[in-house]
């Protein structure tokens, strides 16, 4: 199960928890399951998220595989100038 850390202001959507565990093989699956389990997160997922998997940031990369013990951070979708 991947450990997913969400940012503080999303906590109300996960019952106040900043970390949840999700069974997923890749990012796409992870986001889909997150949305199913915590419907409140769907709006943000739709708006765009980037993820960091074990310290590396992926702006898109939905097929990026997750190891069973991966630590995933949800981040707002990256923008730049």
């Amino acid at each position: 199960m991947a450990r997913v850390v969400i940012w503080g202001s999303l906590k109300p959507h996960t019952g106040g928890r900043s970390e949840v565990e999700i069974e997923a093989r890749n990012v796409q699956e992870l986001l889909a399951r997150l949305g199913e389990t915590y419907p409140g997160l769907q709006a943000q997922i739709k708006r765009g998220v980037s993820v960091s998997i074990d310290g590396l940031i992926y702006r898109e990369g939905w097929l990026q595989p997750l190891a069973p013990d991966s630590e995933v951070f949800l981040l707002p979708r990256m923008q730049g100038g």
């Binding site: 940012w7 503080g8 202001s9 999303l10 906590k11 109300p12 709006a43 707002p76």
Partner: peptide, 19 residues
């Protein structure tokens, strides 16, 4: 968006983030 409970009154604050 991003405050709990959801505000009842509209405002100019679109979103709150916390990291």
């Amino acid at each position: 968006d991003g405050v709990d409970p959801k505000p009842k009154k509209p405002s100019n604050v679109a979103r709150r983030f916390e990291f």
